[in-house]
Amino acid sequence: MKFRRRAGNVAREEVFLNLTSMIDVIFVLLLFFVVTTTFSRPTQLKIDLPEAASGEPNEAQANPLELSIDETGQYAVNGKVLVKNDLESLTNVLQQESNGDTSMPLIISADAKTTHQSVVTAMDAAGKLGFSHLRMTTVESSAGK
């Protein structure tokens, strides 16, 4: 669109654009984003397991079931190494070794460098079978002596 200029000394009208409503909307959006934004800092934990400064020594119970996990995640039940390291194999071996008696204590001895997933898988297998007496073996820390 082309406007013609008028000849003469006619004062030009200034065009005024009301920006108040647009500024209000922008401030509301800014406030919304500030309130709903969450800032998270990734944290790194240095954990040296398994050590415990307190605890009670294991009282002697007849024939506890012992589950050992080495640092590579290899399982052994009562000294017998499992061929497969999956949940199903571990569940079957625990069922056979306990003869269906889930009231006996299950002692889980995991290496300090084993993956957390290996320990959780062992606890999951025990939970599926109904074991209620789980123990985690630790060594007493030198600070606790």
Rank of each mutant, 00 (worst) to 15 (best):
I108R: 04
F27V: 13
G127V: 04
L19K: 11
T137C: 03
N9P: 02
R135I: 14
L45C: 04
R4E: 11
R135D: 08
E97D: 10
E66M: 08
E59P: 13
F131V: 10
A53G: 15
T114H: 04
E71H: 05
A7H: 05
V81W: 00
I108A: 07
R4K: 14
Q44H: 07
V28M: 13
D86A: 02
E88S: 10
I47L: 15
T102H: 02
Q74C: 00
L129P: 06
V81L: 12
A7C: 01
F32K: 01
D86P: 00
S98P: 04
N9L: 08
I69S: 03
P50I: 09
T137N: 09
A7K: 12
L82E: 00
T72W: 02
A60R: 07
L49T: 14
V81E: 05
E59H: 06
Q44L: 09
F16N: 10
I23E: 04
E59W: 03
S54V: 13
M104F: 04
R12Y: 05
V119M: 13
V15H: 05
V35Q: 08
D70L: 01
V15Q: 14
F33W: 10
T137P: 02
L106P: 08
N9K: 07
F3W: 09
S142E: 14
S103L: 08
Q74I: 06
K128L: 12
S89P: 00
N92K: 10
V83T: 07
T20G: 15
A11F: 06
T37L: 11
G79C: 04
Q95A: 10
A53Q: 14
I47K: 14
M123W: 03
L90I: 03
S118H: 04
D24Q: 11
T137S: 15
S142N: 12
E56M: 09
T121D: 11
A126R: 03
S54M: 05
A53W: 03
A110F: 02
A11L: 11
Q61F: 11
T43K: 15
P105F: 03
S118F: 02
M1H: 10
G8I: 07
I26M: 15
L31W: 02
R41V: 14
L94T: 01
R5D: 11
E14P: 03
T138L: 13
G8E: 01
A122V: 05
A62F: 10
G73D: 00
N99L: 09
F131N: 06
E14C: 02
K128G: 06
V77Y: 01
T38E: 09
P50K: 07
L134E: 08
T72H: 07
L106C: 10
R12D: 07
I107W: 11
V77F: 02
T36P: 00
S40F: 14
V35C: 09
G144R: 10
N18G: 08
A11R: 11
L82G: 00
I107F: 13
N78D: 15
I108Y: 03
P105S: 09
L82Q: 00
E88H: 02
N85C: 01
A7M: 04
V35D: 00
L19T: 11
L129Y: 03
L31D: 01
A62G: 06
A62D: 13
F3I: 09
F39G: 05
R6K: 13
L90N: 01
T115G: 09
F131I: 06
H133P: 00
E88D: 13
E88C: 01
V120E: 11
L106S: 06
E66C: 01
D48G: 06
